[in-house]
Amino acid sequence: MKKVFMTFLILSSGLFTYSQEKPNSEKEKEVDEIIDSLLEDEDILDDLIDANFQFLYVSLDYNSDTYFSGRDIGIDQYNIRPQISYIHSKGFIASISGVYYNEFVPKWDFTALTLGYGKDIGKKKWFRLYASYSRYVYSNGVDNPFKNALTLSFGAKNKQRTIGTQLSGTYLFGSDDSFQISSTSYASFKLFKAKKSSLKLKPELNIVIGKQTFELAQTYLQDGVIYTDYSENDVFDLINTQINIPLEFSTNAFDFELGYNINLPSAIGTESNLNTTGFFNFSVAYMFDL
């Protein structure tokens, strides 16, 4: 099970599962939300998309508990995730991010560098394609098998941007490789709207399906001697389902979010008796107009 745990750990602590955090492949959706929160007039938004503008989006996320692919590994700890993103109106995105665990050694787990490009398609721009490459630099000195990730995403939303969904496929590679499919579906309810401020309730349903390799051990007795044979099985199955219920408050260039998250991990291979897990999250972000 050591290899299985390492896979869950790597996938959950910064690649693209929805075990605990929004994935890097969701950046294009987050950019849309930022712009939409500032500009509700779609004609003005279209004019800006045709022009050239760029900004930096700096965020800090706090999660009250840490679970890996929704699974409790028996360590009570919080995590903090800073991120700086450069965003261009033509669809280019570059970011640097990382994660801090208060009980791990070293506490700073990894640094991620991501380059991506997104484009609206269709006459009414209800659909969006996005592709990205991420490179992961780990701090623990261990030869982690997944140091690179390629992601391709397809998203759709209604005209009012109150309902949307996105499907992403991610290929992870390094000294080993794996593949993952994730989906995000959301609804947005406007609770309050002023000239430069808004409050939204935006529940999300996140599903992660991925390839996992399990090491199975079979022990038997032959001629009075105990033998153990090991074999590896590849499984492509549902890993985790997460429900996220956040309140999002935007004012001027600031964004704040307070939410509660519920993980419903699915048993894979020899796993059993997986418990539902939950945690609170809080984030603050600021947009610098360049």
Rank of each mutant, 00 (worst) to 15 (best):
I10G: 04
I10V: 05
I10C: 03
I10H: 05
I10T: 12
L11T: 14
S12G: 15
S12L: 14
S12K: 12
S12A: 15
S12F: 10
S12N: 15
S13L: 12
S13P: 03
S13Y: 12
S13I: 12
G14W: 10
G14M: 08
G14N: 11
G14R: 12
G14I: 09
G14P: 12
L15R: 13
L15P: 02
F16M: 14
F16W: 08
F16K: 13
F16A: 14
T17D: 05
T17M: 02
Y18L: 10
Y18N: 13
Y18F: 14
Y18A: 07
Y18D: 09
S19A: 13
S19I: 08
Q20S: 10
Q20M: 06
E21W: 04
E21V: 07
K22F: 02
K22P: 02
K22R: 07
P23R: 06
P23D: 01
P23S: 11
N24W: 01
N24L: 00
N24C: 00
N24R: 00
S25D: 13
S25A: 14
S25W: 12
S25T: 13
S25I: 09
S25M: 11
E26W: 00
K27H: 02
K27M: 04
K27V: 07
K27N: 07
K27F: 09
E28M: 10
E28H: 15
E28C: 10
E28G: 05
E28S: 14
K29P: 00
K29N: 07
K29S: 10
E30G: 00
E30P: 00
V31S: 04
V31T: 13
V31G: 01
D32R: 08
D32N: 13
D32S: 12
D32K: 09
E33T: 11
E33M: 05
E33K: 03
I34W: 07
I35R: 06
I35K: 05
D36E: 07
D36F: 08
D36L: 00
D36H: 03
S37R: 04
S37M: 05
S37C: 05
L38R: 08
L38M: 06
L39P: 06
L39C: 08
L39A: 08
L39K: 06
E40H: 06
D41N: 15
D41F: 10
E42H: 01
E42G: 00
E42Q: 01
E42R: 02
E42D: 04
E42V: 06
E42A: 01
D43V: 13
I44L: 11
I44C: 04
I44R: 12
I44G: 04
D46W: 06
D46E: 14
D47G: 12
D47N: 11
D47S: 11
L48D: 02
L48E: 05
L48S: 01
L48R: 03
